[in-house]
Amino acid sequence: MRSSEYENIIKVENVYKTYKNGTAKAVAGVSFSVTPGVCFGLLGPNGAGKSTMMKMIYGVSYRDGTPDSGISVFGHDPGRNALPIRFLSGIVPQENNLDEELNVEQNLKVFCRFYNITGSQAQDRISELLSFMELSEKQSFGIKQLSGGMKRRLIIARALLNNPRLLVLDEPTTGLDPQVRHLIWDKLRRLKRQGMTILLTTHYMDEAFQICDSVFIMNKGKSVAEGNPQQLVNKHIESYVLEVYSKESFSVISKNVTEKCCRVDDDGADVTRIYSDDYERLREFSKQLTGGDFYLRQSNLEDLFLKITGSRLNAQQ
């Protein structure tokens, strides 16, 4: 039991989740494992079941009691024994839940108590983390005075109070400006270098590319792809994509874009995406288009994501 605990920090096996008033399963037979020191990303559109999966991992949501299913985090089942898991992990929930009746420092002080960190030890830890998250000057601010980015950074600081071995972040940078997102990625990379295991959810592909060693793409409660982000892109997606922003422009080149040379995705409303490994060919097409109405670029995880989850909205989004 001890050895398996160290092979995988998290092991999820064949997990299902049905909400009482829900008709569809939020999570439908998901399995994955997270090894120590890795940054593991759960990707998927809104409603894919990412948050539900996260909540089951730190024990604030119960999985269905289907046979052969199980979750183990640090060797503990979060459905039965969540406290040791939450003692060893820092949790950053999707929804900000800072205590608005307390200021920045008091928020952290109260949370220190939850971990049984008191006195000067708590004080040291608080100033250390406020400076790490670049919030030192905000120490006595009320929560309502903080911007969205500051709140998010404070919640991350709060999650780090007990020197966690695992950091769980549910959409850490949703709705934040580019500067804050880069700051948060920078901090997460630094924590990872210190040996921390990180599990995060996101629907931003650049985020996954920036910090994840391994991604797990979910759609409608199921796993659809898993692996290293770069390798996934190389394996499933052509190297280049020409995006054409109107149907009129596309009609200029449509007769030349044959199925043999390229893959065409015109699922979206106006944008047509032409995928190919042949950069020169795509450049030839682009020359026939008026400037500004197209964009020729390398393909990325977003293209993979759109390919496998479909570019149209589904009912859960």
Binding site: V60, F87, D99, F114
Partner: peptide, 10 residues
Amino acid sequence: KVYDGMLSSP
């Protein structure tokens, strides 16, 4: 959501 915060600690 004060309880949610508490339930993300031990």
